[in-house]
Design a protein around this nucleic acid. Structure first.
Length: 215
DNA sequence: TAGGCCATCTGGTCCT
DNA sequence: AGGACCAGATGGCCTA
């Protein structure tokens, strides 16, 4: 299922651009525009502020407060905490965006069907895991046949899978790494069974592929 | 309406 | 001290 097929964007924009929805604590956490910057709660892009008043203000503040580690008032401590929290929130948001970007990149190299909704995070990870396993098995089989090993391909049951299932073995027809840019996942998956040679074990020609085979 | 998925916030912990 | 990482909480959106 796709919770946000056309709704909210996958990557929520941050405070520096726009927010998708306000929160109760946003008056403290979001853009500095919502509240006048206090001397101890300087916006991160303060240096670019028109007139460059921020640095001057900070210097003035240091001068006025005697530089370092002076006992701070409760108000100043509170502002400092909020400032740190805001910065931590920004970093955390950015970190999660990076994580989501990596997941999107992973989705991009995984075969999917056109009518399939976007994979969820957990589906993407499981799919990738099983897909890599299938590719590994294919390479193993290719080695066996290339170097004339007498041993026939192991029965499907012996192939095993990381999850105990047997998702099949037809991933070696293309490499998600080497063809990442030109990969046509949808077509590839549907053509895979037919592209496998007639000598392929039955378990490697699973017929119509179900996406769930990889999950 | 319940449940799934997601983004975000938050506080804690560890590391530099 | 500050950043990275993590897990829990919260609330919004969507689908069955």
């Amino acid at each position: 299922m796709a919770p946000h097929p056309s709704g909210a964007p996958a990557n929520q924009v941050t405070c520096h651009t726009e927010r998708s929805f306000p929160r109760a604590s946003d008056d403290e956490v979001t853009c500095a525009a919502s509240a006048p910057p206090s001397p101890t709660h300087l916006p991160p892009d303060c240096a670019e502020a028109p007139g460059g008043g921020c640095r001057g203000a900070a210097r003035k503040l240091r001068t006025r407060h005697g530089g370092r580690s002076r006992p701070k008032s409760e108000l100043a401590l509170s502002r400092q905490r909020r400032s740190r929290r805001k910065k931590a929130n920004d970093r955390e948001r950015n970190r999660m965006h990076n994580l989501n970007s990596a997941l999107d990149a992973l989705r991009g190299v995984l075969p999917t069907f056109p009518d399939d909704a976007k994979l969820t995070k957990i589906e993407t990870l499981r799919f990738a895991h099983n897909y890599i396993w299938a590719l590994t098995q294919t390479l193993r089989l290719a080695d066996h046949s290339l170097y004339g090993l007498e041993q026939p391909a192991p029965p499907c049951a012996e192939l095993g899978s990381p999850d105990g299932g047997s998702p099949g073995d037809w991933g070696s027809l293309y490499s998600p790494v080497s063809h990442a840019g030109s990969l046509s996942p949808a077509a590839s998956l549907e053509e895979l069974p037919g592209l496998l040679g007639p000598g392929s074990p039955a378990c490697l020609r699973p017929g119509p592929l179900a996406f769930s085979d990889f999950l």
